[in-house]
Amino acid sequence: MQFTTKLIPLAIAMAFAASASAQDIVKIGHVGPISGATAHLGKDNENGAKMAVEELNAKGFMINGKKVKLELVLEDDGADPKQGTAVAQKLVDAKVNGVIGHLNSGTTVPASRIYHNAGIPQISPSSTIPEYTKQGFKSAFRVVANDNKLGGTLGRYAVDTLKATNIAVIDDRSAYGQGVATEFMKGAKAQNPAVKIVGKEFTSATATDFTAILTSIKSKKPDLIFFGGMDAVGGPMLKQMKALGINAKFMGGDGVCTESLARLAGDGIGEGIVTCAEAGGVTGEQEKAFADFVARYKKRFPNESVQLYSPYVYDAVMVMATAMQNAKSADPVKYLPELQKIKYQGVTGPIQFDDKGDIKDGALTMYTYKGGKKTKMSVVK
Rank of each mutant, 00 (worst) to 15 (best):
K242P: 01
D254S: 04
A49T: 07
T5G: 11
G119M: 03
V53I: 12
V99A: 01
Q307A: 12
A321D: 07
A158Q: 02
Y369T: 05
K298V: 09
I217D: 01
K242V: 04
G272K: 12
P332K: 08
S204Y: 05
T203A: 09
Q23G: 14
G357I: 05
M185T: 11
M251F: 08
Q240D: 12
R300Q: 15
M320R: 02
K373Q: 13
D354E: 11
V319K: 00
A79Q: 04
K288Q: 15
D223S: 08
G36Y: 10
G65W: 12
F202G: 10
A168R: 00
G229Y: 08
M324Q: 04
A17Y: 02
L162I: 11
I12K: 12
E183A: 13
K328S: 09
S127I: 08
K90F: 02
D361T: 03
Q240G: 08
T215N: 15
T375D: 08
G155N: 02
V53N: 02
Y115Q: 09
M241T: 06
I217S: 01
K299S: 14
K249E: 04
V87D: 06
E131K: 15
G372A: 02
E55G: 09
I34S: 06
R142G: 01
F290Q: 06
K82T: 14
G372P: 01
E338I: 02
K149S: 06
V169Y: 01
A52P: 05
G229Q: 07
L56P: 01
D172L: 07
G284V: 08
G362I: 02
F210M: 08
S216K: 15
M62H: 14
K356L: 13
E271V: 11
